[in-house]
Amino acid sequence: MSAPRLSLSHVSKRFETLDVLGDISISVAPGEFVSILGPSGAGKSTLFQILTGSTPPGGGVIAFDGEELKDASGKFAFMPQRDALMPWRRVIDNAILGLEVQGVRRAEAYGRVAPLLAQFGLAGFERHYPSQLSGGMRQRVALLRTVVQDRQMLLLDEPFGALDALTRASMQQWLERMWERHRWTALLITHDVREAVFLSDRIYVLSARPARVIREIKVPLPRPRGMREMSSPQATKIEADLLEALLGSSAIEFA
C-alpha cells in the first residue's frame, strides 16, 4: 500500500466529558474493502461523522490520496445506518438525491440511475414509494443512492443492521457480488463478525470506548465468496480470532 486512498493517524475525539475515540490509525487502499468491527456504542459512527465533516476531529491527521483532508465534501458517498429514504420521494427520486444536491439536471440524473436499476434489483419499482418496498429493497435503494454519487470512496454505516437475518445474509451476498463487479473503495462499519469476514479484504477491530484499534486482520479468502468459502477452516479461524479480540476488549471493560 504505497498511496492509501484514506489514512487516519492517531485520530481522537471527545464530546465534553465523554472520550469517544482514543487513538485511531487506519488506512484504506484504492479498490479495497475495509471493515471496522467494534462493540456497540464504541464510537464507530463518530468516525463517520468526522469523515463526512459533521464534526471536527479532536486530534490526529486525516489524509485523502496523500493530502491532508480539509474539506470532506465531494470525497465520500455516505450510507447511514437506517436507510434514511425520504418517504415522500419515489424510488427513482430517492436514488438521485445526491445528484440533485450536486446540481445535476433531473433528466440527466435519471439517465445515470436507469442502467443501474436492474443490477440493484429495482427495475420496475422506480415509481414506487419507499413504504411499498421490503427492507432489503429499501437498503438497495439506499445503496444505489450512495454509489450513483460517483465519489472516490463509500462509507457504509451498518447498512444491514436493521434487517432480519435471512434478508441480511442475502443482501451481504448481493453486495459481495456487486463489489466484485465495481471494486468500489469502501469502508464498512459493523458489529457483525460474519458480515465483516464475508465482505472485507481487511478488518480493524476497535475496543470499547474510548475506541482504539486493537487488532488488524487480513481476509485472504478467495472471491467470489459463498457459503463454502465462509465455512472453510481459514474463515472459521479468522472469525474466531475476531470474536476473541472483541470479547477480550469488552472483558477488560467489565473487569
Partner: peptide, 8 residues
C-alpha cells in the same frame, strides 16, 4: 446528516 455528507 446524509444531505450534509452530499454537500448540501
Amino acid at each position: 446528516w446524509l444531505l450534509r455528507s452530499m454537500g448540501a
